[in-house]
Structure formats: C-alpha cells, structure tokens
Design a protein around this nucleic acid. Structure first.
Lengths: 141, 141
DNA sequence: GTTCGTGCAAATCTTTTGCAGTTTC
DNA sequence: GAAACTGCAAAAGATTTGCACGAAC
C-alpha cells in the first residue's frame, strides 16, 4: 500500500487506477495543469481514461481539499495539489503558471479564518501576478 | 457633448447608443457585472442591444484600457471600469464581487512595470479575497 | 452484493466568429 | 461614401449531466 493509495482511502474514496494516475500526475508535475492537460498527459501511459472522469475526479478531490482550483487563467480552470500557501504568476506569452514565493504574508499574515476586511469574512487570499515569465522574456530579447 | 461621449471619442471609437449605454451602466453600477448582467440590465431601458454587441464593445474598451477584465469568478468574466488600484472580494454565497481597500501596497508598492519576482517580469498584481460577504453573513446568523 | 466509479453521448454555458445590413463621421 | 458598428445565427471551447455498465470493497 503506497502513499497515493493511502491518500485516496483516507478521504473515503475507492482506489481506482484512474484516481491513482491523476493523483500521481498532480504530485509529480506541479505545473498547475488544466483538466485537458491532465487528461492528455495521462493518456500517454494510461489510455483507458476519459476526460469526463478527469473532471469528476478533480471535483471530488477539490471537495475534500486535496486539490485546489486556480482561476488565474481567464478561460480554463487550473488545478493544484494543495501545499502550504504560495502564490502564482501567469505568463501571458506562453500561458504557463508558476509558483512564486513573493511575500504575501504582509497581507495574508493578518488573515485568519475569522478575519474580516470591510466586514467581509475572508477565507482565502490569492495573489495573482501576471506578466512575462523569465523564459519568454529571454527568448524575446 | 457629455462626458460619456468624450470618453468614447477620445479613444477613437464612434459614438453609438449601445456604447453610451454600456459605459453609462458601468460608471453608475460598480458591481463588476458579467457581460450577461450588463446585457440584461441595459435591455430594461434600451431593448435594442444584443449580447454580441455587449461582448464586442467590452472587448474594445478592454483593449484601450477603459475597462478591466476581472477573472475572480471561476466560470464567467467580470468587468470593471478602471479606477485606481483596488482589490476584490468574491462572496461564495451570493456570488457578488466587492471592491476592498485592504492594504496591498505592501506587495504592490514594491512593484513597478520593470519589477521582477523570481525572474518573471510582473505587469499586474491582483489580490483576490474569497469568503462570505457582510450581507450573507448577517442573513445566516 | 451493494455502493461507488467510469465513460459515452448529449446538454449547458460562456464567449467568439462570419457576414450582411446599418450607422457614424 | 468609407470605415466602423451592430446583431443574427452558428461555431467553439470548457465543463456538466444522465444513464448504463463495470469495478472496488
């Protein structure tokens, strides 16, 4: 019984090859993939999976907090294995999303589950940076 | 010649009743509406407008910087008349988006058009707060 | 064996596009 | 009158749903 299986069982899910493949992909590839990306990558080694299942599985994982939805990209949802707080940078050239460690604690440090800002109860704070990533910048200059 | 007309002309656009209606709505209703919302609100007083035109007009306004796209809401785009920097709070109960003045300058203050974070050139910083708004919180308690 | 998961096909929802006719300047 | 704008209908892209079959426990 490996770690992936345990993670799935702990949440009350049944262990299926599809779920293992998705979880494994997410853990090994921290690229904030879209559902389509996960699907196409997994299909390479594991053809017996459908896009529908990817969506349904991701929805289940999100519901129990294993995975986080990242709406930094205007027209499609991206998914991120939950880890400690970090923020995201979206490159408008290559469309990739990168983790960044910029100091958000100046804001997030003030926030707890009960924190209110202008009367609104704040659960999460996401900092979305946009621009041109180091790789695209290098190519264009 | 009123202010709305001037705003539109200055950007090199032709002044049409549709554009005036959209701009007027956006200026008077800072609720970060979706395209659909703008359409349905405008239609009440001005039935001769199509959703397609709303989308096309918004795209034009975004292109010249009059309007900003706000992707805080997972499945639909919201639009905001550009003003000075501010941040947004998305209520997961009523689905409304509110402006907030929480101090993002601790982060954004460090950022200029040439600022880099971990090598990435940062153009914009958006802080997205999510939770339950003051009104929904009041109702539920 | 029961419950849960999968996957097809079809539906839904938002947004975009092609194009012909209309309006603005 | 030329260039830009509008709006219909159709297309496109992402995601969801209904349902029958199959797998996990």
């Amino acid at each position: 019984m490996n770690k992936l299986q345990t993670d799935i069982l702990e949440k009350g899910f049944k262990v299926t090859p599809q779920r293992l493949a998705i979880l494994k992909y997410l853990k090994e590839n921290r690229v904030h993939p879209t559902a389509e990306k996960i699907y196409s990558e997994i299909t390479k080694e594991y053809p017996a999976i459908s896009l529908t299942t990817v969506y349904k599985t991701l929805a289940s994982f999100v519901e129990v907090g294993m995975v986080k939805e990242l709406d930094i990209d205007p027209h499609k949802m991206r998914f991120d294995i939950c880890t400690e707080d970090h923020n995201h940078f979206h490159c408008r050239v290559c469309d990739n999303v990168y983790d960044v460690d910029c100091d958000g604690s100046t804001i997030t440090g003030d926030l707890h589950s009960s924190t209110k800002i202008e009367g609104h109860k704040v659960d999460t704070v996401d900092i979305h940076l946009k621009g041109v990533c180091r790789y695209c910048e290098a190519v264009s200059s």
